[in-house]
């Protein structure tokens, strides 16, 4: 994957065929997830979308309840926005004539949304599998459970995509 700025605020992403295949698979899964009814999700995923706005530190309970409702509504709208974004990406891929490499041109705002959406997938896998700090630091070959190993690999690959996209603006002392 390559990310290059070709104009101020404009970015060109290039994916080779295996990267594009991987990404399309991720986007399809995200699209299905965004359409799921949150109330029917497993507790860990439900917590990701509806987690408490406070960890019990003071404040008026009515204020917190109100804030929790505001957040829940905003999170629900976000899922709809992200679903539309997924559909745009999948449509773009369907209509593209050249797929090796598959090239996409996006604005900085679109890139940021895309990055946040890929990070959703990382966080959702982690929540679903109960991924820990030790898992993230472990040698993948030492993780016996295949679903867990595959999940952590996907988290790593998506993390690589994110860093490639943010690379030009990440500060390195």
């Amino acid at each position: 994957m390559i990310c290059e700025q070709f104009d101020p605020g404009q970015w060109r992403l290039s994916f080779n065929q295996p990267e594009a295949d991987f990404l399309i698979n991720v986007l399809a899964r995200l699209g299905r997830h965004y359409q799921e009814d949150v109330s029917r999700m497993p507790p860990a995923l439900r917590a990701y979308w509806q987690g408490a706005i406070s960890r019990g530190g003071g404040g008026d309970k009515n204020d917190l309840k109100e804030s929790q409702e505001v957040l829940a509504e905003a999170r629900s709208e976000l899922r709809g926005e992200r679903l539309a974004l997924v559909e745009n990406w999948l449509r773009d891929y369907e209509l593209s004539e050249e797929r090796d490499p598959w090239k996409v041109e996006i604005s900085t705002a679109e890139r940021d949304e895309f990055v946040a959406m890929l990070n959703d997938r990382r966080m959702l896998i982690a929540a679903e599998l109960g991924v820990t700090e030790q898992d993230m630091e472990a040698d993948l070959s030492q993780i016996a459970n295949e679903a867990r190993r595959t999940g952590i690999l996907e988290i790593d690959v998506l993390g690589h995509f994110i860093l490639v996209m943010l690379g030009p603006q990440i500060y390195r002392p």
Partner: peptide, 10 residues
Amino acid sequence: PVNLMDYVVY
């Protein structure tokens, strides 16, 4: 355990 340090800074 999952968010990358560079990503958090960003």
